[in-house]
Amino acid sequence: MEQHNDQVQALPADPAKIRKIWKVAGFLGAITAIEFIIAFTIPPGGARTFVFIALTIWKAFYIVSEFMHLGHEKKSLIMSIMLPVLFIIFFIFIMMYQGARILDALN
């Protein structure tokens, strides 16, 4: 099988890196499993919703930081992606305010 002289030689895998990837994957799976346990054992309510949202943001952090590698990019790149997200947070608050006003108007 040595017919190609220009065949690219693959570098050997770094076991520590692979282990890190599976560790993050395990984290994501575990957090999802915790969400399920909460969904089945605790009745709906404000505190439960808050825990769900917190766990979701935790998962999102792992995906963006490790899988999408943003945590290891230059700080200016991290900021140019994360700062515009403030608009989304602003939008959530403004729509909550708006939603409450619509509820008032309907009742």
């Binding site: 690219v8 570098l11 895998a13 990837i21 999802t32 399920f36 899988f67």
Partner: peptide, 29 residues
Amino acid sequence: VGIMTFVLILSSVTMVLAVEAGHRMDRRG
């Protein structure tokens, strides 16, 4: 829907492994 979530997370993991193999020019990987 839980099964769907795990399927999607797993396919995300295999994608990270594909990117990692690409860094090493490992075509088979």
